[in-house]
Each structure stands twice: as structure tokens, then as C-alpha cells.
Amino acid sequence: MRRRPGIGGLQTHAAARDQFRLLGENVAKIRTDLMKEQLATFRSQLEDFARKHKNDIRKNPAFRSQFHEMCAKVGVDPLASNKGFWAELLGIGDFYYELGVQIVDICLATRAHNGGLINLQELCHLLRQRRKNDRGVVSEDDCLRAISKLKVLGSGFEVISVGKRKLVRSVPTELNKDHNEILELAQAQGFVTVVEVERRLSWSSGRAIDALDTLLDEGLAMIDDGHRDGRRRYWFPCVSPISSSIAVDS
């Protein structure tokens, strides 16, 4: 459009600009409406789906985990609030709160034994023992979900990865890289010796002893001087298989 001089020209220009704006707004509105409609459809289908497969979601941990994934993709968090449609429909909120309380309980009960660091597998095992009478199975994924909800409490519940295993930490102990490496090493036999740490990690003996002493002080390790070879062993209840059978009430 060629710009023409004069008031008339300016007015025409302004009018044309208004027209364009209106048109643009219309197009945008139609698009958002469409999107909203699609999302609403998706949501209602998700709800239908949830309603239909309510029992599967409750009972089957694998199904539950996939359902969670799907919800996350559309921005629905069934655990976000205990009120509202999702909680009412599925009772999922209660389920995870209950798990959370039981997890805290187990962590506290075993803390004296393991120093507040527990193998995720062991935690699940104890959780299942405790929930024996409940229907439905609890998976490690459920445990992780419940623990992630506990973070809100600011109580320092955290999942850390050591080697291939996941450990759940219920004390505010900060583990540094050295400690992690020792824990990883200990996973093989449940214990390490100073010599072994020096050799396998190529550390100076001072570094090894220092890290082991810290772990000892934190209650994460126990010493064992009873072996025939006379070498002190440092056992880690949080990674050793024997502790997996220690009952909560022992």
C-alpha cells in the first residue's frame, strides 16, 4: 500500500491497522480455543481412562508407573493435592501419603542400625513386609514417588545413587565423592579394608582412613576386628546383604 499524504490517508492507514489487529486476534482466539478444546478432550479421556482402569492403577505397580508418566506429559499431577478430582477418583494421594509415613517409620526404626542410609531394595522389602495385609503391590517406583513427596517436609529425605544401587538418606549427612566411592566399593562384599581402598581407588592411606573415620562417626560404618587375617574390616549396613533380613523391630 502506497502511503498517501493528508488526513484522509492517515485515517485509512489507522483503520486498516485496526482491521489487521482484529483479524489477528480472531485467528489467535480460534487457535487457543481449539487447543483448549483438544486439551479438555484429552483430560476428559484421561479421566475416563483412569475411571475405567481404576483397579489396575491401584493394584498393578507397572501400570501405575506408566499412568504417572502419561499424566506428567499433559501436566496433571495426581499427587499434587489430596483434594480434587484425581484424589477422589483414585485415592492415589492417600496411597502415597500412607507410603510416605511408613517409609519415614522404617527409616527411623532402622537408623540406629544403618546410620540413616538404607538400600532402596531393603526399604521396599521392609515396606512390603509391613503392608503384607494390604492388597496391591508396592514397587520401587512407588517408593521413589512417595519419597519425592516427603521432600516437601524439608526433612532431608533424599535418594542418592551409589554405583548401581539407590540409597535412601534420612539424615542430613552430606556424603562427598570419596564416601560415595567407598560405599560403591563396599557393595561387593558388604565391607572394605583400608588396604583395599588404597589399592582399588589409588588413594593415599591418609585419605582412605580419613574418609572411613568420617563414615564411622556418622554411624554408617561398623568396624570388625574379628577376622583371622587381623585386618580391620569396615562394614556398611546400608549396602550389605545380611542387613536386608534385619527386621524393623529388631
Binding site: G219, M222, D224, G226, S240, I246
Partner: peptide
């Protein structure tokens, strides 16, 4: 009890809480 099979329980532990 289970702890009876865990070797470190046979060594007096140096850390007080443990």
C-alpha cells in the same frame, strides 16, 4: 537374631551411638 550373623557386632564399636 539376625545381628548375630553380622560380623561387626562381635567387635566393640568405637563410636558411642553405634
Amino acid at each position: 537374631p539376625h545381628f548375630f550373623n553380622y560380623p561387626p557386632y562381635f567387635t566393640l564399636q568405637p563410636v558411642r551411638d553405634t
